[in-house]
Write a protein that binds this DNA or RNA. Sequence first.
DNA 1: GTCTATAAATTGATAGAC
DNA 2: GTCTATCAATTTATAGAC
Lengths: 203, 203
Amino acid sequence: MPVAYAASEKRAELVRAATELLYRQGLQHTTLAEVAEAAQVPLGNVYYYFKTKEALAEAVIASHEQSLRLQFAAWAEAHGDPRKRLRRLVLAPLDMADGIVEYGCPHGSLCQELAKLVPGAPLAKAASRLLGTYVDWAAEQFRALECGPRESRALAGDLVAAIQGTMLLAHAMRSKDLLGHQLRRIERSIEDSLVRRSPRRHA
Amino acid sequence: MPVAYAASEKRAELVRAATELLYRQGLQHTTLAEVAEAAQVPLGNVYYYFKTKEALAEAVIASHEQSLRLQFAAWAEAHGDPRKRLRRLVLAPLDMADGIVEYGCPHGSLCQELAKLVPGAPLAKAASRLLGTYVDWAAEQFRALECGPRESRALAGDLVAAIQGTMLLAHAMRSKDLLGHQLRRIERSIEDSLVRRSPRRHA
DNA sequence: GTCTATAAATTGATAGAC
DNA sequence: GTCTATCAATTTATAGAC
C-alpha cells in the first residue's frame, strides 16, 4: 500500500468516527479524544489531518452532503416517476427508525446545533447547505410534476419541514410508533395534493 | 422587603437569565459564570439556589412549561372556537419571528439538545414533557371539534411537527420569509382539513 | 508522517470566611 | 444567606522526539 493511501484512510476513518459520534452525542458533547480513540488514532495525530475541531466538523458535514447526493442519485435512478422519488424521501427515516428515535435525524439535529452559532460561522453556513440540499432536491421533483417554480419551493419546504418535525417529535417522545404513523400520513397528504394537480396519475 | 422575598427574587432572576442564555446559546454553550453575571449574582452563590447546572436547567424547563400553560389558557379565554385557538398556535411564532430565525424555537431547540442525553436522564424526560404539552393541547382542540380521540392525536402530531419543522428550517436557512409563508400554508391546510369534518363552519 | 507528553484555557463545583 | 478564592477535571491545541 502506498503511504498516501494509508494517510487518506486514516483521515477517512477519523471522519467516519466523528460522524458516528456527532450523531449520537452532538458536537459539543464529543471530544477529540473520543474521536481519536474510535478511529484508533492517537490524539495528537488528529491535528495532522484537521487543524481544528471545527475543521473536522466541516469534513463531517461535507461527508453528509456527499452521502445525500448519492442517495438522491440512487432514488432518481430507481424511479422515473418523481412521485415515487418523493415517496422514498418521506419513508426513508423508517429504514433507520431505531436510530432516529434514540438520536434524532443525523442532519436535522446537527443543523439545529450548528445554526445556533454566529450566522457568519463556516459551520452555520454548512448546516444551512445541508438542509438546503433536501429542499432543493424535493423542489426539483415537484418541478418535474406540474408545479410552478414558486409552488415547487413551497411544497418542498412543507414536505421537508413535516419530515424534520416528525423526526424531532419522535425523538423527543422516544416513539417509534409516532414516527411510523406520521410519516405515512405525510405520504398520504402529499399524494392527495399531487392527485389534484397531476392527472397523469390516472392516465 | 422580607429576606425570603429577596431570596426568591434572586432565584427567579437566575432562572430568567438562564432561560435567555439557553435560548440563544444552548445548554452546552452556556456557562454558569455567564448566567451568574447576567443575573448579577456571584458565581459561588448560584450553587446556593441550584445544586447543579442540571438543576438550573430543570428550573428553566419548568418555567417554560408554566409559560406555555398560561399562554394556552389565555388563548382558550380569548377564543371559544377551537379553530381560532389552533390558528393562534400556528401563527404564534410570527410574533417572535426575528428570534426564531436567529435562535430557533425556544422549546424545540432545547428539546432537541436534551433528548440526545441518556433516555433516563431527568432533563431528557423534562424535554419530552415540554413538546408533549403542545401535542396534548392541540389534541384537545381537535377533540373539541368533531375528531375522535385517535384522529385528534394524529392531527395534533401532524400540526406540531409541521410547526416545529418549519421553525427548524427557517432557523437553519435564516429566512423570515420562509417562516411566514410556510406557517400560513399550515394555517390553510388545517382549515381545509377541518372544513371537511366540521359543518358548523357554515352554520 | 506518527506519536507522547504537556501546555493553556475553560468550567463545574466546593471550601470557608463573613 | 452571601461572596471570594480556588480546586479538580476536562479538553483544545501544541511542542518536539522519532
